[in-house]
Structure formats: C-alpha cells, structure tokens
C-alpha cells in the first residue's frame, strides 16, 4: 500500500504525552514523522493507510485524517486539453 501524508491528532484525555514514547510508537509502526511543531496536539506523518490503521487501533486517543492539497482559486479562464 502506497505511503502518503496524514495528520495525526491526539484526542485522548492524557494531560502530558512523552515525545520520545510517541516517536518510538511511530517508528515501531514504520511511520515517518514530517513535522512535530504542533506536538502533542497534531503531527504530520507519512505512512501507509494500513500502518495508520494499525497504529490508531492499538493506541488510545489518536485519530488521523489525510493531509489534503489546497489551491488558490484560479483567476484565469479554463481551457480543455
């Protein structure tokens, strides 16, 4: 299954989360961290959907959604190929 970027969100009740533990957990699931600047609330990671499913189903309080691509609305008219 192809790798893609995901936003991993912590929705659990824990008040303090160990960065080292989260890193180890992600590494153990072959998920690569891209951006931890919003840790612990949000992380940008890369991995397969299968790995993300495995991660979130075995660890409490984490959910994920795809990292989507936004554009500026085109200011010019369109032309079909």
């Amino acid at each position: 299954m192809a790798n893609r970027r995901w936003i991993l969100k912590f929705i659990g009740s824990a008040t303090s989360i160990s960065k080292a533990k989260v890193n180890a957990l992600l590494k153990g699931n072959s998920i690569h961290v891209i951006d931890m600047s919003l840790f612990p609330k949000l992380l940008l990671v890369e991995g397969s959907k299968q790995k993300m499913n495995a991660l979130t189903s075995h660890s409490d309080g984490w959910t994920y959604s795809p990292d989507k691509s936004y554009k500026v609305p085109g200011t010019r008219k369109k032309l079909q190929p």
Binding site: R5, D35, K68, K71
Partner: peptide, 11 residues
C-alpha cells in the same frame, strides 16, 4: 509551485 497542505494551513 505546489499546492498548500492542510497541515501547513492548520499551522
């Protein structure tokens, strides 16, 4: 020239 990711928008 690529698109903006939702994560960068959230940040």
């Amino acid at each position: 020239g690529g698109d903006a990711s939702s994560f960068s928008i959230i940040k």
